[in-house]
Design a protein around this nucleic acid. Structure first.
Lengths: 120, 120
DNA sequence: CCAAACCATGGACTACTGTCTATTGTTTTA
DNA sequence: TAAAACAATAGACAGTAGTCCATGGTTTGG
């Protein structure tokens, strides 16, 4: 498919898709036609974009995603790929804990706001 | 305390502290001295900075933190403050779920990388 | 056929965060 | 008292992420 269709299906703008491609998060091939330089995207790219989109929402940087996507698709060395992925899982679990801490703090603050004016 | 001490205790740079103050995440008072315009920070500000720091690490934006800090300290209307805090808790829990989804995806990818070449 | 819709490219631009620098003034300390 | 350390301010700067625009080429539908 061409970028317009990919844009519609992924919900990402053309510009964003091109940005991701420039950063090697996805790849494309040249169009069949010899007369233009349109890019052709496979269905797999749509799946990849869906993952990338979710990961970006979760706060994973483009640079980190490049590493991940490379590990998924380009790695000649499986153990290298494994290391990258495991490291990212660890990091994300840490982030979950951080967010949980913030949530705990907010819940405590909520109790105070709701009524606990016992001190001072 | 003055900004140097606050910087040491919080682990944030003077510049970052000033940035946060400009964005109303913390506040300070004028120094006792009449001859300078140094700012004076209370111990509470240190606690606030520790929260802010954790929240920034967890990916909460300065703009959102301004709303939260305002809800904590400046709100004349407790139910308004409550709404802001509850909304943020909901949002953070959603973010946790998003990150968990990404982790699940990565774990599945790990299985594939580790050996599961059964299909295709 | 021709206009509308599509595509690629490059660069400008925005917003956000944070750092660094220069300047100037104040306090501390040796 | 003089140097060193500290402070405030403003503006420049850098990196990240994404959008917008201008240009020019291509495809498609009426």
């Amino acid at each position: 498919m061409k970028i317009g269709e990919l844009s519609k299906k992924s919900g990402l703008s053309r510009d964003t898709i091109r940005l991701y491609e420039k950063n090697e998060l996805i790849s494309s091939s040249a169009s069949q036609s010899e007369t233009n330089n349109y890019r052709e995207y496979s269905d797999d790219v749509l799946l990849q974009l869906q993952f990338v989109s979710a990961a970006r929402t979760a706060g994973i940087s483009i640079a980190d995603l490049r590493e991940l996507m490379k590990a998924f698709f380009d790695s000649c060395d499986p153990s290298e790929a494994e290391n990258v992925i495991v490291a990212k899982i660890v990091e994300l679990n840490e982030r979950i804990e951080e967010i949980k801490n913030v949530v705990s703090f907010l819940e405590a603050a909520l109790l105070k706001v709701r009524g606990g004016h016992s001190e001072s």
